[in-house]
């Protein structure tokens, strides 16, 4: 098993699907990380509205807000995409902000929230799953029933309910105050609702590991429960967690988009792919790209994460190959 992680990562990257997914994910992350670069190069501020602003198209100054194409030229629409590198490559939104820059900045938030809540979710799920699987008995009974109860509530309904309560008010727990626009709120909520999803396979794995001979051997040597959990059971859970991580992250990203679309996640003026889709909702007939581009970004990221998760699972569990 020496260097087994390196070997598995190499195996995943040499698979066609694994390499594709990793490359796609890496380019999305890289693009989002370079958001400030795009903004600085083009001299734009994607977080303040600029309805009266102008930009340069084909060497001419043009207004960001253009009269509509209808016969009476009633109302204004933001400028459309010109698909060329430079400012407003994907056009502007109804506030006159650069859509491309907002998609890149929004991606940072979307990826950050998805990754953070997936990490948080897996840690919580591992604690619950390990305790339930290892200790068994009434601890297992109580924890499993709580998970069942959480899982019985539709995930989005649950997330929306929690968000309605917390977003806009913030959370005050004694001396700790979390502001209404703090990203920790959506991160915490999304992590919480997917805990049952991740905790069940981890509990099953912990249960089978706790019956392994080496656990009995450790107990016979006089190891305490915590020592066994930490040194014998937890290392055996890492493959399961590695497989779950991208899958949970994909779910978290979708949940984040849904919450943000409903104004229950990331709060303006900050952006995420979900909020940009919401911005684009009113422009769907005239400037569909405002909604389509972040939507496409979500689709591609979730696809890459799922393909990566499946490739990882196939590599770690040869018996399950081809599922």
């Amino acid at each position: 098993m020496e260097g087994s992680y390196r070997r598995i990562i190499r195996a995943v990257l040499t698979r066609r699907d694994g390499a594709f997914a990793a490359l796609l994910l890496a380019s999305i992350i890289f693009a989002c990380l370079s958001a400030p670069l795009y903004a600085a190069l083009n001299g734009i501020d994607p977080f303040s509205s600029d309805i009266a602003g102008t930009t340069i198209r084909n060497g001419q100054h043009v207004d960001l807000m253009q009269p509509n194409d209808n016969p009476l030229h009633l109302g204004l629409s933001p400028i459309g995409p010109d698909w060329r590198p430079g400012p407003y490559a994907l056009g502007a939104d109804s506030q006159g902000r650069d859509v491309a820059a907002r998609v890149l900045y929004g991606g940072r938030n979307s990826l950050l929230i998805a990754a953070a809540s997936a990490t948080f979710c897996l840690c919580l799920a591992a604690c619950i799953g390990i305790c339930a699987g290892y200790f068994g008995g009434w601890i297992d009974l109580i924890l499993s029933r709580i998970l069942d109860m959480l899982w019985a509530i539709p995930v989005y309904l649950f997330a929306i309910s929690l968000s309605v309560v917390t977003v806009g008010h913030g959370i005050r727990l004694g001396p700790v105050t979390i502001g209404a626009d703090n990203l920790l709120i959506p991160i915490g909520i999304i992590a919480l609702v997917y805990v049952p999803y991740a905790a069940r396979p981890l509990r099953a794995r912990a249960l089978s590991l706790s019956q392994a001979g080496f656990v009995m051997a450790a107990r016979g040597m006089g190891a305490s429960d915590w020592r066994i959990l930490w040194r014998e059971i937890l290392p055996g859970l890492t493959p399961t967690m590695a497989v779950l991580a991208p899958l949970v992250m994909a779910l978290c990203m979708l949940a984040e988009s849904a919450l943000s679309f409903l104004s229950l996640g990331v709060q303006a003026p900050a952006a995420s792919w979900g909020t940009i889709i919401q911005d684009g909702e009113g422009l769907l007939y005239t400037r569909p790209m405002v909604a389509i581009v972040p939507g496409l970004a979500i689709v591609l990221t979730v696809l890459a994460l799922n393909v990566l998760g499946n490739a990882l699972r196939d590599q770690l569990d040869p018996k399950g190959a081809g599922r």
Partner: peptide, 25 residues
């Protein structure tokens, strides 16, 4: 369990199936 731990070094077990009594990791 805690009180028994003091006695554990005095009595040890050799298990039947040596393939499962070592943590593979």
């Amino acid at each position: 369990d805690r009180a028994l731990r003091r006695w554990r070094p005095r009595m040890q077990m050799v298990f039947q199936d040596s393939s499962s009594t070592f943590n593979p990791r």
